[in-house]
Every structure is written in structure tokens, then in C-alpha cells.
């Protein structure tokens, strides 16, 4: 069933279904198409403020559908430098376009070394097809 989900090559992924797009030391973070589909219609999202520190593998926020709440897990450690206000006022954007317009936060990462802990596209594809 997951073959229907596009998994862009250029991103890194977490086991918890976040994606991370790395541009030098700036990392844009969102949830994958697979994640938004499993959650169903997202009606609420809670994100950190800019300036806040986040830690790799630890929750930085929450997305909630009508039925359930799910933690957002930070793919890297660092400082939040930008938050997508659009998804806070219209959480449905995460369902509509999770990999682009529905991005969540941008993190200035502390160290590139942590990227080794993340999945690359082929491995993430295997994970959701399992």
C-alpha cells in the first residue's frame, strides 16, 4: 500500500516518520506523506518557539487528528530558527502538502555528525513498505 507515497531522494528520514531537508547547517523538518495518511485529518499542531533548543530523537511538538495525538520527534539537535505559522492556523496544510507547504520548523543544527543516525530514502521506503 505504501508504494503510493513519494519518498524524495534528497531528504533524510526518522523512524518516526519525520523528514529532514538539509541545506548546509539549516534543516527543514516536516512529517512524511505516510505519517499524515496514517494520522488522518490533522486538526491541531503544537510547535516550539523560535530560539528554543531541540534534541535529536526527542519530542519537539505534537500533531493531533480528531482521534489521536502523536509526538513530533526532532531529527537533529539544534536551535529552532523558523516556525511555519501557516500550519498552526491551518493544520490541514500538513495533510494536503506534507513535504512542502506543510513543513513544520527549521533547525540550525549543532553538528552534522547526527545525520548519520537518520535514514536515507531507500531505507525509509523499506520501512514503510514493510
Amino acid at each position: 500500500m505504501s508504494a503510493k507515497f513519494h519518498v524524495p531522494e534528497e531528504n533524510y528520514y526518522t523512524k518516526d516518520h519525520e523528514w529532514a531537508l538539509v541545506d548546509e547547517n539549516l534543516v527543514t523538518v516536516g512529517i512524511t506523506n505516510y505519517a499524515q495518511d496514517s494520522l488522518g485529518e490533522i486538526v491541531y499542531v503544537e510547535l516550539p518557539e523560535t530560539g528554543q533548543k531541540v534534541t535529536q530523537h526527542e519530542p519537539f511538538g505534537v500533531v493531533e487528528s480528531v482521534k489521536a495525538a502523536s509526538d513530533l520527534i526532532a531529527p537533529v539537535s539544534g536551535t529552532v530558527v523558523e516556525v511555519n505559522d501557516a500550519v498552526q492556523s491551518d493544520p490541514g496544510l500538513i495533510n494536503d502538502d506534507p513535504m512542502n507547504e506543510g513543513w513544520l520548523i527549521k533547525i540550525e543544527m549543532d553538528t552534522e555528525k547526527e545525520l548519520a543516525q537518520l535514514l536515507k530514502a531507500p531505507d525509509y521506503r523499506k520501512l514503510i513498505e514493510a
Binding site: G40, V43, V66, K67
Partner: peptide
């Protein structure tokens, strides 16, 4: 079934 098209839409 917990949902078909989506909880909000069905509601």
C-alpha cells in the same frame, strides 16, 4: 472500520 473517507468528513 474506524473511518472510510476521514472522520471529519464522515461526521
Amino acid at each position: 472500520p474506524v473511518q472510510f473517507k476521514g472522520i471529519r468528513e464522515e461526521h
